[in-house]
């Protein structure tokens, strides 16, 4: 066991998988000598060299296209997109190519790549260093989408993602890269994809969150607990395919739920979660489902904390839902 933050846990997962399997390679902008702009890949270049820790030219479409080619050959590439906000030049390669390769080739060509990229606000990054584009990828058949909230989960989920035979978007909540520390086993372990975690059991309202917003959800649950509202907080961990059973069981118990996410509200992932749970729990619902999300604006700089669905906006939503 070692105390690690999220950056160190992801680094440990990469190092472990690269030692274990020579087919695992890391590529991206600044991932080599400098170890990434967030230092997530620090030390890998020294240990594994130029051929497996590859500083690429500055073109996201090239990073993902190259990684896809490597995966088709049989490698397990882990490309990094420096910020999720810069993933769009690679959108065609992810959506038209990686996501469809297995299907369009009748199963001949699996495409096991794990695209790591920091997401979310809270670092005063403005439009282009803050966005949460998960819904675009959840909407694309063929992709899996993961977003850990803590170092232990990050290591176990990244190992599972790299070993998974399908393309995975691995979103890293950069707001809590260094803010959360916990004991992480030095030995190998995995956390299966598609399994959510009830991080705080409760009876009155189900709160669904992931990544950095999980901590806002937990703080909000603490605050309303003093008023007698008991929240069941679920960390999705894998966004897609979602752990529907855990969600349905919880909502069947509470009859009320709130979804929290940073991305804009309209057509955000919360919309899909509300639809799914309404379809499956309609007769059990005792209050309208509520989404506490980013506004439908570009991500702002100065007013970042007004944009983000922080505790000050979650708490009233929990109260209203509980008392509806």
């Amino acid at each position: 066991m070692s105390e690690m933050n999220l950056v160190q846990a992801i680094n440990a997962a990469l190092r472990q998988e690269m030692r274990r399997n020579p087919d695992v390679v890391v590529l991206g902008e600044d991932v080599g000598k400098v170890g990434g702009v967030f230092r997530v890949t620090q030390g890998l270049w020294e240990e594994f060299g130029d051929e497996r820790v590859i500083d690429t030219p500055l073109a996201e479409g090239g990073i993902i296209g190259t990684a896809i080619g490597m995966a088709l050959y049989g490698l397990r590439p882990v490309p990094e997109i420096q910020f999720a906000d810069f993933i769009y030049p690679a959108f065609d390669q992810i959506v038209s190519e990686a996501a469809k390769y297995r299907y369009r080739s009748g199963g001949e060509y699996p495409c096991p790549i794990t695209i790591r990229t920091p997401v979310g606000g809270g670092i005063r990054g403005g439009h282009y260093h803050s966005q949460s584009p998960e819904a675009l990828f959840i909407h694309t058949p063929g992709l899996k989408v993961v977003c850990p909230s803590n170092p232990y989960d990050a290591k176990g989920l990244l190992v599972s993602s790299i070993r998974d035979d399908d393309p995975v978007l691995f979103f890293e909540p950069k707001r809590v890269y260094r803010a959360v520390k916990m004991e992480v086993p030095d030995e190998e372990y995995t956390i299966p994809l598609g399994v959510a975690k009830i991080v705080r059991p409760g009876d009155h309202v189900t709160v669904i969150a992931w990544g950095a917003m999980l901590y806002e959800a937990l703080a909000s649950a603490d605050e309303v607990a003093a008023e007698g509202i008991s929240c069941e907080v679920i960390d999705l961990r894998t966004l897609w395919p979602v752990d529907i059973d855990t969600l349905v069981q919880s909502v069947q118990k509470t009859g009320r739920f709130v979804v929290v996410h940073e991305a804009p509200k309209s057509c955000g992932y919360g919309a899909e979660l509300v639809s799914l749970l309404t379809e499956k729990c309609f007769l059990r619902l005792e209050a309208p489902p509520v989404r506490v999300t980013g506004w439908d604006t570009p991500f702002p700089y100065t007013l970042e904390n007004e944009y983000l669905p922080l505790q000050h906006r979650i708490v009233p939503a929990l109260r209203e839902t509980a008392r509806y």
């Binding site: 051929e51 190259t66 896809i68 080619g69 088709l72 050959y73 049989g74 065609d92 038209s96």
Partner: peptide, 16 residues
């Protein structure tokens, strides 16, 4: 789209 993929494929072959 196949052009960058061919480059990655070639890189992988050389690695092996």
């Amino acid at each position: 789209t196949q052009i960058t993929q061919a480059v990655g494929f070639g890189w992988a072959a050389r690695l092996r």
